[in-house]
Simulated scan of single mutants.
Amino acid sequence: MSTQGLFTHIDHVGIAVRDLDEAIAFYEEKYGMRMAHREINEEQGVAEAMMEVGDSSSCIQLLAPLNEKSTIAKFIDKSGVGIQQMAYRVENIDEVCETLKERGLRLLYPEPKRGTAGSRINFIHPKDAGGVLVELVEPNPEGH
């Protein structure tokens, strides 16, 4: 893989929230965003909603904890509500992960996992990404 072109778009920015319904209402009523997708991800312990940003293909992902042990609950306890992650879209997550590992970056998962709407995801460790949790997203080819 070349040194350019690892990421194709900003896929979404993840926002940790305490109450998903309240956050959805805020983003719809105040910002005029539309909810594109909502689901429960038991494995990650979150309820999540993707809010479309205008006519772009970028979204705001609202993430609420399902329980006090979830990563999002721990994030909120430590940092409060707010930006939790930056997600970049990739065409082939397996190739991108391999390239990043070759470049000395640590990934959180040895293999990509299932993400929102059937996507495949992995994360770059924040200590290797300037303190930012970076998510890699290979969209489901069938869309939302």
Score class of each variant (00 low, 15 high):
126 P>T: 00
129 A>D: 06
110 P>A: 10
129 A>I: 05
112 P>L: 13
125 H>T: 07
112 P>H: 10
124 I>D: 01
114 R>N: 15
110 P>R: 11
129 A>M: 04
124 I>E: 04
126 P>V: 03
107 L>G: 04
112 P>F: 12
110 P>N: 12
130 G>E: 08
125 H>S: 10
106 R>H: 08
134 V>C: 08
115 G>H: 07
112 P>K: 12
107 L>N: 07
130 G>C: 07
124 I>Y: 00
125 H>I: 02
108 L>S: 08
106 R>A: 04
128 D>S: 04
134 V>L: 06
113 K>A: 14
120 R>H: 09
114 R>Y: 04
108 L>V: 09
115 G>K: 07
125 H>C: 12
124 I>A: 04
133 L>W: 00
122 N>K: 06
127 K>L: 08
116 T>E: 09
106 R>D: 02
115 G>S: 12
104 G>C: 06
120 R>T: 12
106 R>F: 00
124 I>S: 05
119 S>P: 15
105 L>T: 02
126 P>I: 05
127 K>M: 10
125 H>Y: 05
124 I>T: 02
121 I>S: 10
115 G>A: 10
119 S>R: 06
130 G>V: 03
117 A>S: 15
134 V>R: 00
103 R>P: 06
105 L>V: 00
129 A>P: 12
119 S>H: 03
121 I>C: 08
128 D>L: 06
123 F>W: 11
123 F>L: 14
128 D>A: 05
104 G>P: 12
131 G>L: 05
126 P>L: 05
123 F>R: 05
107 L>Q: 03
117 A>C: 11
121 I>T: 11
132 V>P: 09
126 P>E: 05
129 A>Q: 04
133 L>H: 03
122 N>D: 12
108 L>W: 02
109 Y>S: 10
112 P>T: 14
127 K>S: 09
127 K>N: 13
117 A>E: 06
129 A>W: 01
127 K>I: 01
131 G>Y: 05
130 G>D: 05
109 Y>V: 02
106 R>Q: 09
104 G>I: 01
104 G>A: 07
129 A>R: 02
118 G>C: 10
106 R>V: 00
